[in-house]
């Protein structure tokens, strides 16, 4: 009577065989490199090459050197700011699209909102540079309107980085929250109105709580993608207040310090991991289904 057992074993082998190539690729080109990087982070660079004694010196140096700690805090500050601003900009847009645009125009409105993002990422950051440059569109308009005397310094500051990030992530938030809002049963909103809740009260007591999962998802995505990005801060933020990815590439490119860059990469990964765990906790407290 072992037929069931034997069948389940061949079944397991078959399933494993289908999954094997993907697992091998992930192991060889993702997990192994992480392990190699972890090993390198415990070595140190010397004048002549690499000292292979295992030490936490790189981590100690990272947290001891104010410029590097500052990069970590710049990253956290930028990502947090981008998350909040993107939610503040994106949520009302999603709400307006879901409830104040006729149903048959909504798809077109969404397509139009995504359209500009088919430019290359690098080009998009460059385009913001055109807008924010001292002699760019914004400054020339401000001066033309007589609002300022000389050009306002926006390009190559953290403000420009946040603005450039918000451009993309506000769209992402709007899309995610829109999908969340459309999943709310419209009868719930009618029921709330029927029971005497005003528009504001309905929003605060029904719509907003029901859109929390979409808010959490988009906030998590925004934070994690923004904190790991190199392009936008490098093009728009310049070299004034470096974020962690810039500092990592600086270690590699200018100083050739692979062990230090590895250690910093692991710190960056740890930050993202913490964000993941926080997000996981936040979504777990949601009522199931």
């Amino acid at each position: 009577m072992d037929t069931g057992e034997r069948a389940s074993r061949t079944d397991a082998v078959r399933g494993a065989a289908w999954a094997a190539p993907a697992v091998l690729v992930t192991a060889a080109f993702f997990l192994l490199p992480l392990a190699v990087m972890a090993l390198w982070s415990l070595w140190t660079r010397t004048a002549g090459g690499v000292d292979r004694t295992l030490t936490l010196a790189n981590y100690a140096r990272f947290f001891g050197e104010s410029a590097l700690v500052a990069a970590l805090f710049n990253s956290l500050e930028t990502a947090a700011l981008v998350t909040v601003v993107s939610l503040v900009v994106g949520y009302p847009v999603a709400y307006a699209l879901a409830f104040h645009v006729p149903a048959r125009w909504q798809r077109l409105a969404l397509v139009l909102a995504i359209l500009p993002f088919w430019t290359s990422y690098v080009v998009r950051s460059y385009a913001w540079l055109l807008v924010l440059a001292p002699n760019g569109v914004v400054n020339q308009t401000l001066i033309g309107l007589g609002l300022t005397e000389g050009p306002v310094r926006i390009a190559y500051t953290m403000t420009a980085t946040v603005l450039g990030f918000t451009h993309f992530f506000a769209m992402l938030v709007a899309l995610t929250v829109y999908a969340g809002l459309k999943r709310i049963n419209p009868r719930l909103l009618l029921a709330a109105r029927d029971l005497g809740a005003g528009a504001v009260s309905t929003f605060l007591r029904v719509t907003l709580p029901l859109s929390v999962p979409a808010i959490a998802t988009s906030a998590f995505l925004t934070f994690v993608l923004a904190i790991g990005d190199y392009i936008t801060p490098q093009i728009l933020g310049g070299n004034t207040s470096l974020v962690l990815p810039q500092a990592i590439l600086f270690q590699i490119g200018r100083r050739g310090d692979v062990p230090m860059a590895s250690a910093m990469s692991l710190v960056l990964m740890a930050v993202i991991l913490v964000a993941c765990l926080v997000a996981l906790r936040a979504t777990r407290t949601e009522p199931a289904r």
């Binding site: 992930t26 490199p33 190699v36 790991g228 990005d229 990815p245 590439l249």
Partner: peptide, 20 residues
């Protein structure tokens, strides 16, 4: 394990491959 790379920044993935 297969989904894990999604949570890691492209920069870290690229760096890991470079070092390896």
């Amino acid at each position: 394990a297969l989904v894990l790379p999604l949570t890691v920044s492209y920069l870290v993935i690229g760096l890991g491959l470079l070092v390896t």
